[in-house]
Nucleic acid binder design. Sequence first.
RNA 1: GCCGAGAUGGCGGAAUUGGCAGACGCGCUGGACUCAAAAUCCAGUGAUCAUUGCGAUCGUGCGGGUUCGACCCCCGCUCUCGGCACCA
Length: 806
Amino acid sequence: MAYDHAKVEKKWQHYWEENKTFRTSDKTEKEKYYVLDMFPYPSGQGLHVGHPEGYTATDIMARFERMQGKNVLHPIGWDAFGLPAEQYAMKTGHNPREFTNQNIDNFRRQIKSLGFSYDWDREVNTTDPKYYKWTQWIFEKLYEKGLAYEDEIEVNWAPDLMGGTVVANEEVVNGKTERGGFPVYRKPMKQWVLRITAYADRLLDDLDDVDWPESVKQMQRNWIGRSVGASINFNVDEHPDESIEVFSTRADTLFGATYIVLAPESDIVDKIVTPEQKAAIDEYRQKIASKSDLERTDLNKDKSGVFTGAYAINPVNGAKLPIWIGDYVLSSYGTGAIMAVPAHDDRDYEFAKKFKLPIIPVIEGGDIEKEPYTGDGVHINSGFLDGLGKKDAINTMIEWLQTHHAGDKKVNYKLRDWIFSRQRYWGEPIPVINWDDGTKSLVPEDELPLRLPKTDDIKSSGTGESPLANLKDWVNVTDKNGRHGKRETNTMPQWAGSSWYYLRYIDPKNDKMLADPKKLDYWLPIDLYVGGAEHAVLHLLYARFWHKFLYDLGVVPTKEPFQRLVNQGMILGTNHEKMSKSKGNVVNPDDIVNEYGADTLRLYEMFMGPLTESKPWSTEGIVGANRWIKRVWRMYLNDDNSTSDMLIADNDGKLDKVYNQTVKKVTDDIEKMRFNTAISQMMVFVNEVYKNKTLPKRYAEGFIKLLSPITPHMAEEIWQQLGHKDTIAYAEWPTYDESKLKDDQAELVVQINGKVRAHITVAVGTSKDDIEKIALADDNIKNNLQNKTVRKVIVIPNKIVNIVAN
RNA sequence: GCCGAGAUGGCGGAAUUGGCAGACGCGCUGGACUCAAAAUCCAGUGAUCAUUGCGAUCGUGCGGGUUCGACCCCCGCUCUCGGCACCA
């Protein structure tokens, strides 16, 4: 009968599961290949067609490498903590675990229906206490090394939402909560913070050692935002105890500094503000405090600020510089204070123009009347720097500052420390106890995991603390000496569990340690990591940070976790727009699997275009993919399941060239993850077979092996029908015969002045002179050369002849 | 504004090292099979002109350049997408 995808796919999925075909051993004599998908969050919506794109790509690589004889680790698991489950639980009065488990079951069912070759014995789940025990363990190590600390951080506080709750940045839209539209205020709260900035340089430098898309590296570099410059100290006039430190990458322009600006939040403002200016300053600071970040940055490019009445002394020339506050200076970067050089900085220029502050040019070039000049040039009005260029002037100035104890070299980063607390129930509890005497301690390692207490009644605490604060039995603790304390009620962010999950796959059931060092040594680093570009910065930076920390502890053997990274593109709707419920252009993979089968979905998604590009879904395209799958099937089997007449035992030699070409191109393309062109070459082969009407058995077997990573179910069935007892999953990958690729004849293009005028066929190895003679003897060439003089003939053997004539 | 990627038939895309632009698929047209249709198989399919055949001209976002030869390299633009966005 005709190909029955439902029956065949079910049969082989069952076979793989029963036989544990894809269980990975830790035998170390084989070469290893670790291929990983980005950790899925099992949402209530289930899979969309974007998921299988990346998963199919990694699955093809896993299957390909197995057939190449490698020991492949290809795992999957669930990043299952997170807000949606908590919100659902609050609404319905259930525990989020139940809801989460349902979602995981649905995801697992969908993923299994696509025939991916995961080792299901290694499935992990971040919400499993056996897993988060080690997430907590890593936190404790960070704390012990001084890399986890508490700080007062401003959070998004929505007092009217669910009785008072903290919301994430993503949940704030135009200063209101995304759900309900309640106002959001900035409120400082004590938060756990991880000192990722201590790793800034290494996170930056080691990007050079990984095989990642340049765009992702660049995004991480920008995010870390290392900038080298100088710190410069300004004394404050009439305040001998106060000084202001600024950071500048342009110390060379110090002679051009005409005022100082402090971030409005700066503590020093209160100490130096003059009585006359106090009211204006207070009013301004009040106004700023109620502004959201968005209003302070995105929406408001217009400079604002107020004079404090105080003056700073320029260390290099003793000039009195007015000290202002202005919200274009960020308290969170550098020292929260700048020296303003309006002649050579766009922002300072705008501010100076608005408030009529002096503008002194110190570099030649540009016209200060019209706009600031930020380029290089010869220094002027700058004392000992006069005549120098930018680079020399910077160095000279820094030396001067060092000798006069007025400043030093300094490096700053845009990267901020990682705010690690979430005021949520559904996350890993932070294993810390705050004792009444003001001290704090970690939950002892042998008491980990610190389990999340079960409750069906998750309620907002109303204080900004997590719902855990309501659970008095859990929160209150007494040590053996009768000392009372309270557990930390903040939980960890979703990023925590996903920052090290790839290590747990290596040894998922180990209850003595995070993972066995011998196994880590064998499997790391990950050879291929595939996922969406949305994780280009945060997830990949956090995971790299934890990996480097674990490297320093001696837990992992490599500096970097992910050697090769590939971002799959987005699959757009048929209207070329991003798929979304509201646009009604969402394609559900379940429907495609039901109608055409998993193999068709896999084949189509790989054939649509390059893996890394965005491309639109096409309803006709999926039909075409299905049509080709059936065409392949008929090449092997008739409708009554008897062997196709095309199959012949002996090789008649007619397909030698195209078969060997196909093996070569498909092998090469899969290695480079160019699945679309690999498939097109296989289509070429099938077209040739149909034209030829015969298919030698050896090529029939080789071809189905080439196709098997992409359409594994059909391939297994055909392989079995060809008389094989074992799975095709470990069959040896075909090789090609180089000698069969060569022709003895070569067709050359003959051009006149770059335009194709004729084709000639010559024996391979014909001399340039002979080729030239043959080309010039061609009738069409002779016609075209009438009334023309041949000036030059270029011959590229086996390719082209170009005759220059006029 | 800054950084990055890109623009090729009616559509998705291919051209791997500067050497026949448009592989492969979709769509469309025609033929075979069929009472008929579907399915399948085969052929054609960038545009314009010429069609009796050979063919000719144009053509890879736009304008220049380098080269015997440019989708590919260089210079200058336009547009699209992604990221960052007062980071001193």
